[in-house]
Design a protein around this nucleic acid. Structure first.
Length: 354
DNA sequence: CGTTGTCAAGCGGCG
DNA sequence: CGCCGCTTGACAACG
């Protein structure tokens, strides 16, 4: 099992998602920004390896306007060696990588222009994996899309688009995730039947939308759609309901009791698990320790010291402050302003209640 | 130098 | 019918 977190590392003081306004586009600006994003990405991956987190979702904005017409700069060749070096690091350390193109990627839209832009975005994100020379176990994760008043028709359009418009390089990497409102595991399975696309399983979405399949069974149905050689082991997103919040909202931090309960349903199935939890790497690290205690995860890397860092701080109003709020000059770092209060709920109840 | 409105792109659902 | 959430962060204009 490999575990990880999506896109953003809140501990490091860099961002791999720097961007700029479309109106400010220039080749120079693009080069400068991509170079900065790739450098940060390298630091994040190194941090992850040092903490035993070998699954990572890269953000969609590594190359700003990566699939926009304005961007005619040949970034693929310009940054070829940088991408390849990242890929080398990833392979040397046995990491698993994914992308999750955002909500604008809708393969089943009735609007051909939307579908065309969606395909272009998938080509852009897939080409980064190609440039890193990663095999087809590195994935592009999307949802089935909209319903448009007729889910049956919408699913048929998805299948049609898959067969007719996706390049082979994208097809080999594409996986579809069950969502929490429209397309359940069952409907994703129908897409698998028609296209062979593996299902990226989201446990929380399945709790929100299902047809009575117990979690343990659902996991196995999804896992069976992953061809071991071509696709690798099942990728999944893990989260749980935020207490006292809108149904479907992710929790702010890992809830150990619920996670342990989930592990019972996992019952030894090998998966790579992405923690879609607001405090990012903090929960992934917490989960890693819990999993190691159960013998489900490889021992921590040599020299690894369990974290004492605070995942985030709260300002006077109780609002979270990310430590990586990017300022152009770290000049005169405001000496850790007044006892940054820890996220209290994070530290309490270290032992998993039964 | 800190604050805040706004940013390429799409959906459905809620108030 | 407008706004929000989605993985929710960063730019850039303004004071």
């Amino acid at each position: 099992m490999k575990i990880g977190y999506p896109c953003v590392n809140e501990t490091l003081d860099c961002s791999a998602a720097r961007t700029f306004r479309l109106a400010s586009y220039s080749p120079e600006r693009l080069i400068e920004t991509v170079a900065s994003n790739l450098a940060c990405l390298r630091r994040i991956l190194e941090w992850n390896v040092a903490h035993g987190l070998l699954f990572f979702r890269m953000g969609s904005d590594i190359v700003p306007f990566g699939s926009h017409e304005v961007n005619t700069f040949p970034w693929q060749t310009h940054f070829k060696s940088e991408f390849r070096a990242l890929g080398e690091f990833i392979k040397q350390n046995g990491m698993r990588i994914s992308f999750h193109p955002d909500q604008f990627v809708v393969l089943n839209s009735p609007d051909p222009a939307i579908v065309r832009r969606s395909v272009n975005e998938l080509v852009y994100q897939g080409s980064m994996l190609d440039l890193m020379e990663l095999d087809s176990t590195a994935k592009l994760q999307i949802h089935a899309g909209g319903a448009y008043g007729d889910k049956g028709l919408a699913l048929a359009r998805w299948v049609e688009t898959f067969h007719q418009l996706l390049p082979a390089a994208v097809k080999a990497r594409l996986v579809v995730e069950n969502d929490d409102r429209l397309y359940s595991l069952r409907e994703c399975l129908s897409l698998y039947d028609e296209t062979g696309v593996p299902i990226l399983f989201d446990n929380f979405h399945h709790e929100c939308l299902n047809h009575g399949e117990p979690m343990r069974l659902a996991l196995r149905l999804a896992a069976a759609t992953w061809h071991p050689q071509r696709d690798g082991v099942l990728m999944m997103d893990y989260s749980s309901q935020a207490p006292n919040e809108r149904r479907g909202k992710h929790t702010d931090t890992l809830v150990p009791a619920l996670f342990e309960q989930f592990l019972d349903d996992l019952a030894g199935l090998d998966v790579d698990m992405m923690f879609e939890i607001k405090d990012k790497e903090a929960s992934a690290v917490a989960a890693a320790q819990l999993l190691r205690a159960r013998g489900l995860l490889a021992p921590a890397p040599a020299g690894y010291v369990p974290p004492t860092f605070v995942p985030a701080t709260l300002d006077a109003a109780g609002k979270r402050v990310a430590p990586n709020s990017k300022t152009r000059k770290p000049a005169a770092a405001p000496a850790a302003k007044a006892s940054p209060r820890a996220v209290a709920s994070k530290q309490s109840s270290p032992k998993p209640p039964q």
